[in-house]
Each structure stands twice: as C-alpha cells, then as structure tokens.
Computed example of a mutant assay.
Amino acid sequence: MAESNGRRATSGDVAREAGVSRATVSYVLNDNPNQKIPEATRRRVWDAATRLGYAPSAAARTLRTGRSDIVLGLLPHWPIQHVLGRLIQQLTNAFAEHELTFLVHSSAQPTRPLREIWKSVTPAAVLALHDFPESEADAMRAAGTEVVMAVHGSAHAGTRPPLVSEEPIGAAQARYLANSHRRLGYAYPDLAGLGVLAQPRLEGVRKACIELGLPEPDVRIIPLGPEGAAEGVKAWLAAEPPVTGICAFNDDVALAVLVAMQSLGLRAPHDLAVIGVDDIPGAATAQPPLTTVVRDIDAIARGLARRVVDALDRKQTPAHPIQDPLRVHTRGSA
C-alpha cells in the first residue's frame, strides 16, 4: 500500500523494497527493451510497486516518452446531464485504450481562466466541445500542445470544420415526421450556450424541409418550464397553416412540450406529434412515451479518440465528420 505517513511512494522506495537499484526499477517499470532483466527480478520489482502503491508521475512519463499522456477535454457551460455524462465516460474509456488520460475541465463559472488550465497540465492534446479563439489554439501549440481540436468546429469563417456533425439529426427528425405532417415546428432550447448544437440541428430540419417540399419550419424558443412551453404550443397551433409536427432540440425540450400540451388539454400525437433526440431515461416513461433519435455515443467517442491519436502520431486525418449512426426509436408521441 502507499506510505503510511501519507507520503507518495517513489521509485527509490520501490528499489529499497525490492532490493534492487533505482535504475533497475526504471528499466522494469518502463519496460525498457534494451535491458536484460531476469524474470524473477522483474516480478520482485512489480510486486514491490504494487505493495507500495507506486505510480510514475506525469512529469516522469513526459520525460520518458517525450510527451504528456493527458488529453484535456474542454466543456462549455452546459448542464452535465445524461448524454454529456455518457460521452465523457466513453471518451475516458476510449482514450484509456490508447494509454491516454482524459482530463475534463468545465467552463462553468466561477472557474480559472482557460490559459491557466492548459499551462498547468501541459496536455499532449486538447479536445474542446465548444468553439474558442484561434489565438488560444495557436498559444496552446506554441506551448507544446501537439493537437488542438474542436468537436463542433469553429464559428469563425470555417477555420475548424466539425468533427461531429449535428445537421443529420435534424434531417432525420424532419424526414420521420414528413411521412404524416406537412408543416413542422422546431423547439429551440432556451439556453444560449447550446446554439453550437441547436443551430446545425435546425439547419438540418430546414434543408430536409426544402428537399421534401415543405414550408420553412416554425421555430419557437421553448423553456423547460411548462408555462413558457405552453406559449410555444399555442403559437404552433395558431399558425396558418397550423403546425402538426415538432422537431425538438433534445428529449428535455421535447418533454417540456409534452407537459405543456397536457396542461392545455392536448394529446400527442393527435394534436401535435413530437420527436426528440438522445433517448434519455425519462423518454420511455413519458406520457405518451417519447419518439426520439438515438445516437451511438460509443462510436462517436471512439472516433474522436482515433482522430486525436492519429494526429498525435502524425497520421493524416479525414476531412469529413465522424460517422454517427442514427436511428429513430418510435414510441407513442409521433
């Protein structure tokens, strides 16, 4: 176990415990192929390291390999709920398969300035879920960070294309509803920071409507509270011609629409059909159960990890977004 006085075990402690030199400990734990260490000695060193709870420091690994093993994940000021939590866990697992550590930093206030964070951990790569200034990316690279990627690209003149495209989600929603509905609405989230996701999803709905010969979607900002959502529902039904199918930004917004409909004495899908995104746990227990677009979070996480690792290895990475298999889980709301 670790030192009883709370001090972190060192390679010197391991050497004393195993009865070998510190150089031997380094050769064994770093699996140096140029040193012939007897198998019995290797086992003794590993057993000693396990008993003491020894782990090489990040600085030592950096000196040995020539780069940090940390990938810094930058989160925007979003609520860390079911889907984002799943993505973080899957990214952690995916990077671990490549012997990289995924370290997450949220920009939720109050927080330290971004520059202080990446300077303190000197990551090998930065993977951001939101846009950030290109000058910040340049500063990271100048400080030794080899790879800087933004999952959803850059809003500034297309300087960074998205690694994951959101447009196909909106298109899938619109195409599903278009089988039975000729006027669609879009339930936009009442949180400005989600625009990086909401805008391309809405654009996917718009493009699908053009392709299918449907009118421009009727866009309403829908708060998660039932009273604010009810105003949007009333506006959709009062439109000319009335909206009969709703593409919601995600399941949380879709559930707000369903609750608002119930408060107005309306029923889905009879009065309004509703489709969400993400298949959160509450989707199946909603009244009626929510039809939703399901993403393959594991495929996204593995794809993102592969892009980062390939870039670190100086391999050419594809220009197109990561393939994100989508399917519609049909339930009672649409």
Rank of each mutant, 00 (worst) to 15 (best):
T244W: 05
R182L: 08
A260R: 00
A157N: 14
R206E: 09
A283I: 09
R86G: 04
H105Y: 15
I88M: 15
E97Y: 05
I210E: 14
Q173P: 02
G332S: 12
L87V: 13
R302H: 15
P281H: 10
A15T: 07
G66D: 12
R64P: 00
V293T: 13
R115W: 13
M261A: 05
D298V: 15
A96V: 10
V20N: 05
S57H: 01
A283P: 09
A229W: 02
C247L: 07
S165W: 03
P242N: 12
N30P: 03
A157E: 13
V196Y: 04
G73M: 13
V293P: 07
Q199I: 14
R112Q: 09
T285P: 00
G85E: 05
R16L: 12
G73Q: 07
V294N: 02
V71K: 01
A15Y: 09
P200C: 11
I210G: 05
I70G: 01
R220Y: 07
A59P: 01
T41E: 07
L87D: 04
A172T: 14
R183C: 11
D13V: 09
V243T: 14
H270V: 09
L91P: 01
E167I: 01
A311R: 14
R206H: 07
L212S: 08
Q81N: 01
D271N: 05
S120A: 15
Q316S: 14
E134R: 08
I300Y: 03
A238W: 04
P217W: 10
A208G: 10
I210Q: 14
A305P: 03
F102H: 08
L304S: 03
D296H: 12
S263E: 06
G282N: 10
V243D: 03
G245P: 01
I275H: 03
V45L: 03
H152E: 01
P226M: 00
R141G: 02
A268R: 08
I297A: 07
D279R: 10
L84Q: 01
L63A: 03
R307F: 07
A178T: 04
Q81L: 12
T92N: 14
L197P: 00
D296A: 10
A60R: 09
T145H: 06
R67C: 07
K207W: 02
A157T: 10
P168K: 07
G225T: 08
F132K: 01
I222V: 15
N32L: 03
P289H: 05
A171N: 04
G12L: 13
A18N: 05
S180C: 09
A187C: 06
A55N: 04
L202K: 04
S135K: 06
Y54G: 10
V205Q: 09
A48D: 02
A157W: 11
V121S: 11
S154R: 08
A299Y: 06
P241L: 03
L63W: 05
D138H: 08
V25A: 05
L264F: 12
G144W: 11
L177A: 01
A125L: 10
L72Q: 00
P217S: 06
L258G: 01
V294G: 09
V121C: 15
K315Y: 05
V257E: 03
F249R: 00
H77T: 06
K119N: 10
L129D: 01
G66L: 07
P288S: 11
D31E: 15
A273D: 02
L191C: 00
R61A: 11
